[in-house]
């Protein structure tokens, strides 16, 4: 199984499943991270432990620790 945190910067993947608690999953869903959506990892900021994603041409950031809860498959 692959998680969003494992995806290389610049690579794309498809969202498979969201982990974490209900509130977190809802927030991700409503920001457009619905299973089946394709994502691109735009950049990482190692100092802050953050990840920037592109979804539907829109930008989103989340913490690396939380990206580890997002299951993806590379495309």
């Amino acid at each position: 199984m692959t998680y969003l945190g494992d995806i290389l910067t610049g690579a794309t993947c498809r969202l498979v499943d969201l982990g974490g608690e209900a509130g977190f999953r809802r927030r991700l869903l409503e920001l457009g991270l619905v299973p089946g959506t394709s994502l691109r990892v735009v950049r990482r900021v190692p100092v802050g432990g953050l990840l920037e994603l592109e979804v539907r041409r829109c930008r989103l950031t989340l913490r690396t620790s939380e990206a580890a809860l997002v299951q993806v498959e590379p495309t």
């Binding site: 953050l50 930008r59 989103l60 950031t61 989340l62 939380e66």
Partner: peptide, 12 residues
């Protein structure tokens, strides 16, 4: 407070 996930929209 509950630990809130950091989910930010990155505006241009």
């Amino acid at each position: 407070g509950k630990r809130v996930p950091l989910l930010l929209q990155m505006p241009p």
